Computed example of a mutant assay.
Amino acid sequence: MSQQLELRAIVDEELAGARLDQALAALFPDYSRSRIKEWILGECVRLDGELKVKPREKVIGGEEIVLNTVLEDVVEAQAENIDLDIVYEDDDILVINKPINMVVHPGAGNPSGTVLNALLYRYPSISEVPRAGIVHRLDKDTSGLMVVAKTLPAQTHLVEALQKREITREYEAIVTGTMTAGGLVDEPIGRHPTKRTHMAVVATGKPAVTHYRVAEKFRQHTRIRLRLESGRTHQIRVHMAHIGHALLGDQTYGRLRLPKGASEELIAAMRGFQRQALHAVMLRLAHPITGEEMEWHAAVPQDMLDIAEALRVDHKLNPDLG
Results as ranks from 00 to 15, higher is better:
P29K: 09
H245S: 03
Q163G: 12
V148Q: 07
H239V: 00
E293M: 11
G190P: 10
I36G: 05
A118P: 00
R232D: 11
R257G: 00
D90A: 01
G109L: 04
R232P: 01
R33M: 03
L15K: 04
H315R: 15
T222D: 05
I174R: 07
K195N: 14
K58N: 07
R237H: 12
G254L: 01
G177L: 02
I82G: 12
I126L: 11
D12T: 12
L145E: 11
R169Y: 03
T69A: 06
R223S: 15
M270C: 05
D30K: 11
H239G: 08
G244K: 08
G244H: 07
R223V: 05
S127I: 06
L84R: 03
K217W: 00
Q274K: 12
L283P: 05
I96M: 02
I289L: 01
K195D: 13
K37Q: 14
Y171D: 11
A154F: 08
E166V: 03
I134R: 09
L162A: 12
L67W: 05
V214M: 01
T114D: 13
T168K: 15
G291R: 02
V147A: 09
G144H: 00
Q220N: 15
L145T: 10
M179S: 10
R225C: 14
V281I: 13
I40V: 02
Y123K: 02
R131G: 00
T222S: 11
T222F: 00
N318I: 06
T180S: 14
R169I: 01
A299M: 10
K54R: 13
